[in-house]
Design a protein around this nucleic acid. Structure first.
Length: 773
DNA sequence: GCAGTCGTCATTTTT
DNA sequence: TGACGACTGC
């Protein structure tokens, strides 16, 4: 613990802070020893291993403030990188409050945002047209589809999603098509063909996808000596947030930017690495000390968020992982309540449990927004949602469509982009028949063909193809005239008026007005919202300071739309229960947290287990647990309807891995009809007096609710031949087992049985001759 | 061009 | 179960 010295200075380890000015004193005063060590570290590389809730952002922001206030560095010499716009703006805001010099010109942003900025500044050197546009994930997918088609590679054999993923993976490994020239594998060769064609198309049309932003910026700073020198000289200090989430390319880029003189300050938590499936490499944390000599590790282990019990649970669980840098969270704020575990009958029962507990907490004067319900898969939200609606509890589901991803918004943006660059085929294709104006698939295909054959854009093709378009030629002409006339009309207009005109003249507004459905109403509102969003991009006073990219309002607006997909729906500041996936919860915290669906197969997810990613699933569980400040509830359903079939589930192995003294089993409503669920590998041994997690029958139907009123899924489960789910049966060869599910009916009924040593088998019921055990 | 039908598929997601 | 895409028929 820091010792407050008599004179009001501070001692940290053997460091003296007595000499600090009041400003600096105030800067380090709220920090604990480890945090101070990181914040006040000499100008050397540091890796801060920041456990959940250990004040990671605080260390990052205070370090920046320290560099400015104590080391006297210019904010211009600092680059702070994050993954999300939200994190970036929060960081900037917090730094602003810590220092009294203006930091507007300081580079704080996402990897993509920074890359984009550099490319706008050096578009020529990067080999891009000045008006290059950004392709979002959806645009990219469309383009890949088109390219595959042009190469006669059918979608069923070359799934666009897979191809796109592959291309992005190549880019994230900094591999260009020409680096892949020698691949042997036939599949790979075809993929390289698509990649090549895709890349050519992008380049011709001035389109840059997300991965390309990073790759270009990386190549530019790597290969252009002048630019490299410029940035190395300028950005002496690079701070990186969530370092465990960096991918290969991001790490390589950091190395290039830092060069031999730059100083890296990376903050991350290997135990919270849950994005390996999208290219994140925790290994980057280990590589750091190899690549950046003298890089010391500072561990932040004191947790300011959760109770002792919650931390014990998290520590106990994560200790099972082998690949770790090692870290143990502690707190001095007391044990708190035990974690409550509820064994639900099915997902409806589980949702009821959540709602009942939510109500209890609300009586205890907590706000809706203090409560979060976390789950592994988005599909789990529906039942929770239904139940919350019935209980009239306001809620918000994270992870819906974002503003700039909405259909009507993308439609309007397509016109704006087309005004900006007629040769942007992705936008052309979208706009040309939206709203429908009689230019159908055939005509579009003809335009594509013509464009391909003549090596021109579709816009040019539309102008040249003429008679080849047959009867639709007139329609295409009209469309071109429309675009040109919108362009002429709006040339002098401020961006918001321009957007407004585009929405009117394109016919989008009329289209949705005519439709008159509820959804159309919402779409019209969104279009209005787009107009007012555009207002924010109209000629702002140029910011003083450094080389702001001179970007016209339209470009700025389009970039914003691509790079910041905007808030998710739901009014901000509304007090409601938060529903989200465990992944989406990373970085957040709530006083009360529910983790539902704690079943093997669901969490850890069967797929992840199959692919050998159990440790990452465990980290995800660790993330979930450490979101909770005061109370944590976990639940699992013994029976869950998934993909239309009811399946018996067993408690998550993670429940077993949490130290038992942290958990307490709870039964708020004792009486439900349950299927037999004895032994057979059900979770653990029965606890003394607890009835065991895998309990047997538990009495009759729910008090006061007639069975007929129960949801279908809650009625007792029985199968053909008098066999039930969960029943123990004997098979002549495989021995004794438990019935997991039925499929089909009549003669073709099949049954899935989990046997002891023989594993799980699907058997034809008519053949298997199963005997009740 | 569009509505209706059928078959297939089913973690996690930011930029 | 239910969402989504491809296909069919008008």
């Amino acid at each position: 613990m820091p010792v407050i010295a008599a004179g009001g200075g501070y001692n940290v380890g053997n460091m003296q802070f007595n000499h600090l000015s009041p400003t600096l004193g105030a800067l380090v005063a709220p920090l604990n020893t480890a945090q101070r060590e990181a914040v006040t570290a000499p100008l050397e590389h540091r890796l801060v291993l920041a456990g959940a809730g250990s004040g990671k952002t605080r260390v990052l922001t205070h370090r920046v403030a320290w560099l400015i206030a104590a080391e006297g560095l210019s904010p211009l010499s600092i680059l702070a990188v994050t993954f999300t716009n939200k994190a970036a703006s929060e960081m900037r805001g917090r730094i602003e409050r810590l220092v009294d010099v203006p930091i507007r010109a300081m580079w704080v942003g996402t990897f993509h945002g920074i890359a984009h900025r550099i490319l706008r500044l050096h578009w020529k050197e990067a080999g891009l047209p000045q008006n290059f546009q950004i392709l979002d994930a959806d645009d990219q997918l469309r383009l890949v589809k088109r390219v595959s088609k042009s190469l006669d590679l059918p979608e069923d054999q070359w799934p666009p999603k897979m191809v796109t993923g592959w291309i992005n993976a190549q880019k994230e490994e900094a591999r260009r098509p020409e680096d892949l020239g020698s691949v042997e594998d036939l599949t790979q060769q075809q993929l390289v063909r698509i990649y090549t064609a895709y890349q050519t198309t992008c380049e011709r049309q001035g389109l840059v996808d997300f991965a390309e932003l990073l790759l270009r910026a990386y190549e530019l700073t790597r290969d252009n000596a002048e630019i490299q020198q410029h940035y190395r000289r300028r950005l002496r200090h690079i701070l990186v947030d969530e370092f465990q989430d960096t991918n290969t390319l991001q790490y390589r880029w950091l190395k290039v930017l830092a060069g031999p003189t730059g100083i890296l300050f990376a903050v991350g938590d290997d135990d919270q690495s849950v994005y390996s499936w999208r290219g994140a490499r925790v290994e980057n944390m280990l590589d750091l000390s190899r690549d950046f000599p003298g890089c010391e590790i500072v561990r932040l282990e004191q947790n300011y968020r959760s109770t002792g019990t919650i931390l014990d649970a998290a520590n106990g669980l994560i200790a099972r992982n082998t690949a770790r840098l090692g870290k143990k969270l502690w707190t001095d704020t007391g044990e708190g309540e035990p974690i409550q575990l509820y064994a639900a009958f099915n997902e409806y029962d589980e949702a009821e449990f959540v709602i009942n507990r939510v109500k209890e907490h609300l009586d205890g004067a907590c706000a809706y927004s203090d409560i979060a319900v976390l789950y592994r898969m988005g599909a789990q939200s529906r039942v929770l949602e239904e139940t919350l609606i019935r209980a009239r509890i306001p809620y918000r589901i994270y992870g819906g469509l974002r503003f700039f991803e909405r259909q009507e918004i993308k439609d309007a943006l397509a016109y704006l982009r087309l005004l900006h660059n007629r040769h942007d085929d992705v936008s052309f294709e979208r706009a040309v028949n939206t709203p429908t104006r009689g230019i159908g698939a055939t005509t579009v295909e003809r335009l594509r063909q013509y464009a391909r054959d003549h090596g021109v854009s579709m816009w040019q093709a539309a102008g040249l193809a003429g008679a080849a378009l047959g009867r639709s030629a007139g329609k295409v002409k009209e469309f071109m005239a429309l675009v040109e006339s919108i362009a002429a009309e709006t040339r002098e207009l401020p961006l918001s008026r321009m957007t407004e005109r585009v929405i009117e003249r394109s016919g989008l507004r009329g289209h949705y007005q005519k439709e008159g459905r509820e959804q159309a109403e919402a779409r019209l509102e969104n279009l209005d919202e787009l107009i007012s969003a555009a207002r924010g991009f109209e000629l702002k006073a140029p910011e003083p300071g450094d080389e702001q990219p001179e970007v016209d309002p339209l470009t700025a607006f389009l970039t914003h739309a691509a790079l910041e997909s905007g808030e998710e729906q739901a009014g901000p500041g509304e007090d409601c229960v938060q529903l989200m996936t465990l992944h989406a919860a990373k970085g957040l915290e709530f006083p009360i947290v529910f983790m539902v669906g704690m079943e093997n197969g669901l969490f850890p997810h069967a797929r992840a287990t199959d692919e050998g990613n159990l440790e990452e699933e465990r980290r995800l569980c660790y993330v979930g647990i450490t979101r909770a400040r005061k109370r944590l509830y976990m639940s699992y359903a013994e029976l869950r309807r998934l993909h239309g079939v009811e399946q018996l589930g067993m408690p998550s192995q993670f429940l077993k891995e949490i130290p038992p003294e942290c958990l307490v089993e709870t039964r708020p409503r004792a009486h439900m009809v349950r299927p037999a669920f004895a032994g057979g590998g059900a979770y653990g041994a029965r606890r003394p007096g607890g009835g065991g997690y895998g309990g047997g029958y538990r009495g009759e139907s729910q008090v006061g609710v007639p069975r007929t009123a129960m949801p279908k899924a809650m009625q007792p489960v029985s199968g053909p031949n008098g066999l039930r789910l969960g029943q123990r049966v004997t098979h002549a060869r495989f021995g004794e087992g438990t019935i997991l599910q039925f499929d089909g009916d009549g003669d073709r009924t099949r049954v899935e049985v989990r046997f002891g040593s023989a594993g799980t088998k699907w058997l034809m019921l008519s053949v298997a001759n199963l005997q009740p055990a």
